[in-house]
Amino acid sequence: MLAADQYLMVGVVLFGIGVIGFLTRRNVVVLLMCIELMINGAGLAFVSFCRQTGSLEGQVFVLFAMVIASVEIAVGLSIVLLVFRNRATLDVDEMEVLKW
């Protein structure tokens, strides 16, 4: 039997990669995908803890997290569509009318 630590570590790395991606990429869609990566990392952590403790709460949490993720993505993408319709761009750095 493997230690849950290793799964956890994979989750951590996925989360981290998501963060790295979020900070370095400029395409809005990619940013949303990075958030997906982060959520999955968290999910993996949850499930591994679940396995460790034998409680189901973690799995339930992951289930809801998936729903949340999908809702966020749906809303996010609809806003992306709105943005694209307005400015024909997906480059997040070009969305800077609002500043100081």
Partner: peptide, 18 residues
């Protein structure tokens, strides 16, 4: 501006949610 605010809000918000 409203759209931009929304995209900024959701991106950072989702990031924070993560």
């Amino acid at each position: 501006v409203s759209t931009e605010a929304a995209i900024k809000y959701i991106l950072t918000g989702a990031f924070a949610s993560g």
